[in-house]
């Protein structure tokens, strides 16, 4: 999941300075799970911003709405009707959510309410840890399922540096040296021979070194609409499935009628409902 945290209140106050009416938009998916931008947090933040403005003697009205998935255009489409009355939108989605809003509503100023941190997992109550940097060229085959590209501060691919002490990383001594863990488990997985091979320089062209990455997962679903805009893969997939097969013609849907049910299923998967 994508892990994010709220920006400090003073940063948000600075961002919203001079705005009279703002719509805070939460997101019911990842950032809800990590308690940064779900419905509760959005409500709380809206109240906090109004209170802070009142204390400063400023006039600020903050309304709030939470959509189920801010990174999918169809989920945010219903917001369009009311947007004109707001001076700005404060998105409590991840960076993808903010940009989906900004792209969908180019005449509305969308501001980021969160700092998006990483793709990760909850490791203990209240703690999330990074697990994937999305390098586009997965090495987990060679490393026993533990990612040194994400979890080693030097992204080493051939074993630990000298900064590993007591199995911990010198850059943050509360974090395990991932190469210590990889090596530590190598016997169980019979990985030693593979770990002794010199891994060649990584092909970073699939990572952040190139142009913005774009993936067509299923060509059969990739059908531009009449207006040239591509239907999101997700909605197209739902349509295709509903129409019983990928050959079916996909039309641009106004909104996904199954979104709620699928969202519930997704949250259930995460153990949250």
């Amino acid at each position: 999941m994508i892990v994010a945290e709220q920006k400090p209140l003073e940063d948000l106050q600075r961002m919203l300075k001079g705005k009279k009416k703002v719509l805070a938009v939460g997101c019911g998916t990842c950032v809800s799970v990590c308690f940064a931008g779900g419905q509760k947090e959005t409500r709380g933040l809206a109240a906090a911003l109004q209170t802070a403005a009142a204390v400063d003697g400023e006039e600020l009205e903050v309304h709030e709405r939470t959509v189920q998935r801010q990174c999918v255009q169809e989920f945010i489409a219903p917001l369009e009707d009311d947007l004109e009355e707001y001076d700005a939108v404060l998105s409590l989605g991840c960076g993808v959510g903010v940009q989906t809003m900004a792209e969908r509503f180019p005449k509305t100023r969308t501001l980021p309410g969160l700092d998006t941190n990483f793709m990760g997992q909850p490791t203990e109550p209240g703690v999330w840890e990074e697990r994937c940097v999305g390098c586009g060229n997965c090495v987990l085959e060679y490393t026993g399922g533990l990612c040194p590209i994400t979890r080693c501060p030097k992204q080493l691919m051939n074993g630990p540096c000298g900064g590993s002490e007591g199995g911990m990383c010198e850059v943050d001594t509360s974090i395990p040296c991932i190469w210590s863990k990889i090596w530590g488990n190598s016997e169980n997985l019979n990985l030693m021979d593979m770990l002794m091979e010199v891994q060649p320089p990584k092909d970073w062209s699939t990572s952040r070194g190139g142009a913005m990455r774009r993936t067509v997962v299923r060509d059969d679903l990739h059908q531009p609409n009449a207006d040239g805009r591509t239907t999101t893969t997700e909605v197209a997939a739902a349509k295709a499935d509903a129409a019983d097969g990928p050959e079916a013609e996909v039309e641009a849907p106004p909104a996904d009628p199954n979104a709620g049910a699928r969202e519930d299923a997704f949250l259930k998967e995460l153990g949250l409902s």
Binding site: K154, Q155, M157, N158, E170, K202
Partner: peptide
Amino acid sequence: SGDHQSFGNHPGAKNVHDVDSMQ
């Protein structure tokens, strides 16, 4: 490999690590 930049006088620097010391 190189000491991590967080120990130095430009802790906000972006490190490279395009290749590692073995490579």
